[in-house]
């Protein structure tokens, strides 16, 4: 179907075997179970943090803070919502905290958010990936930088909704729960984000 790409992401997110069993084991002190829970989600968490904050150092802090919060509070988790809703709620709050703190320290935000900084990060990541044909690489690099720049023009909330829906494949209902808002509000947010992105990326289409 049309939405095949995001559905695949969804499937890998849902894949971790008996998640409830893992959570219960981790709650009773099984460290391996906790580590498996972390590994089921940590790439997604790191990706969100990277794309939201555009800074490896801050992404690293978000990763650490978020999973420690989960670790410290896991025993209080009562299955009132799904585990991933709780996890992404924690991650979202930690990310927003970082963005707020950054606003206070203005000088940081200019360092992180300059166009040059972005290009640098993309170049770094590129070196890790497999070597493909150079023209394609240049195009991908420009596109990734373009998408990143377009994302930076969204509000943090729009950016988060867009990341979670488009790139992590979460449903709007879950995103609403994560952000503590209604599905309808999340939908409006996604709608605005999509419109802005499309206008901004018109040149690439």
């Amino acid at each position: 179907m049309y939405d095949a790409a995001t559905e695949t992401v969804n499937a890998t997110l849902a894949a971790p075997l008996d998640e409830t069993g893992l959570i219960r084991a981790a709650q009773s002190g099984d460290a391996d179970a906790f580590e498996r829970l972390v590994r089921a989600y940590d790439q997604s968490v790191l990706r969100i943090a990277m794309n939201l904050l555009r800074s490896p150092d801050e992404a690293r802090d978000v990763y650490q803070e978020a999973f420690l919060k989960i670790f410290r509070n896991l025993r209080q988790f009562r299955f009132d919502c799904s585990f991933h809703t709780w996890l992404y709620r924690v991650v979202t709050n930690v990310c927003f905290d970082h963005l707020r703190r950054r606003k206070v320290r203005k000088e940081d935000s200019t360092v992180v958010e300059t166009q040059d900084g972005l290009v640098d990060q993309v170049t770094q990541i590129e070196e890790v990936g497999p070597a493909a044909n150079p023209e394609r690489q240049t195009w991908n690099r420009e596109l990734s930088a373009g998408i990143a720049a377009a994302l930076q023009e969204l509000t943090p909330r729009e950016r988060m909704v867009f990341e979670l829906r488009h790139y992590e494949g979460l449903r709007l209902r879950a995103i609403g729960e994560i952000l503590g808002t209604s599905e309808e509000a999340a939908k409006n947010c996604l709608f605005r984000a999509t419109q802005k992105m499309r206008t901004r990326l018109e040149a690439f289409v």
């Binding site: 990277m50 770094q124 990541i125 990326l201």
Partner: peptide, 18 residues
């Protein structure tokens, strides 16, 4: 176009985080 965004997670960063 959006799906072509190619920004894999830096494996060193992931290992460091873990």
């Amino acid at each position: 176009l959006l799906d072509e965004r190619d920004e894999p997670i830096d494996p060193t960063l992931l290992t460091t985080c873990r």
